[in-house]
């Protein structure tokens, strides 16, 4: 073997192969172990090579680990688990907002339905006169129309809140049909046929 580690002898090549196997942690059979010992006794180059390889292996194992900086780690959390937590929270907020809106629409629809023609049974049972009944119905329509106007104004913002950036212009153009006391759709109200 020369000074650059180039092997020019078949026996030296075999010896170095065994040395590497030992460095790998592989056990040699007794015959190979004996042969290597005898070769190393008589070959200074291979003995030196074995020693240097062992020292290099020890030195490599002692190289220090470079710790991952905390600010870099924070960026990783921001791009992984923290983003997922924020998305889950946003989804829950959207679901909650949708539930509130659904309850509001259902409540208004229920109230409006009770004041519609054909639901006089409860009113008659309450013992109201025709005049009182007419005035109550007018007041109820007034309140319902005020509510419907307020809801109509906040409708776009409400949808945006529920759907976030997923609302497309096409979706925004779809009219939100909302039953009211007069039973008319949003288009008829928007055409200036407002009761209020």
């Amino acid at each position: 073997m020369n000074e650059n580690g180039q092997i020019h002898d078949l026996n030296c090549a075999r010896a170095i192969r065994y040395v590497h196997q030992r460095l790998d942690g592989d056990a040699l059979d007794p015959e190979s172990t004996g042969w290597l010992s005898r070769h190393l006794e008589g070959c200074g180059d291979c003995r030196q090579a074995q020693e240097e390889l062992k020292q290099i292996q020890r030195a490599l194992r002692e190289l220090t680990v470079t710790p991952f900086p905390q600010d870099a780690m924070d960026e990783v959390w921001d791009r992984t688990t923290r983003t997922a937590s924020r998305r889950a929270w946003t989804d829950w907020r959207a679901i909650a907002a949708a539930a509130v809106l659904a309850l509001a629409f259902f409540g208004i629809w229920q109230v409006g339905d009770r004041t519609a023609p054909g639901t006089e049974v409860a009113v008659v049972e309450a013992g109201l006169s025709d005049a009182e009944l007419a005035r109550a119905a007018a007041e109820a329509r007034f309140v319902l129309n005020l509510t419907a106007t307020a809801l109509r104004r906040s409708e776009r913002a409400a949808i945006g809140e529920v759907m976030g950036k997923r609302v497309t212009p096409a979706l925004q153009r779809i009219p939100l049909l909302m039953p009211n006391s007069s039973g008319r759709s949003r288009e008829s109200r928007e055409n200036g046929e407002d009761d209020v």
Partner: peptide, 8 residues
């Protein structure tokens, strides 16, 4: 390993 030793 051999190349590293030779390099050194």
């Amino acid at each position: 390993r051999e190349r590293l030793r030779a390099q050194l």
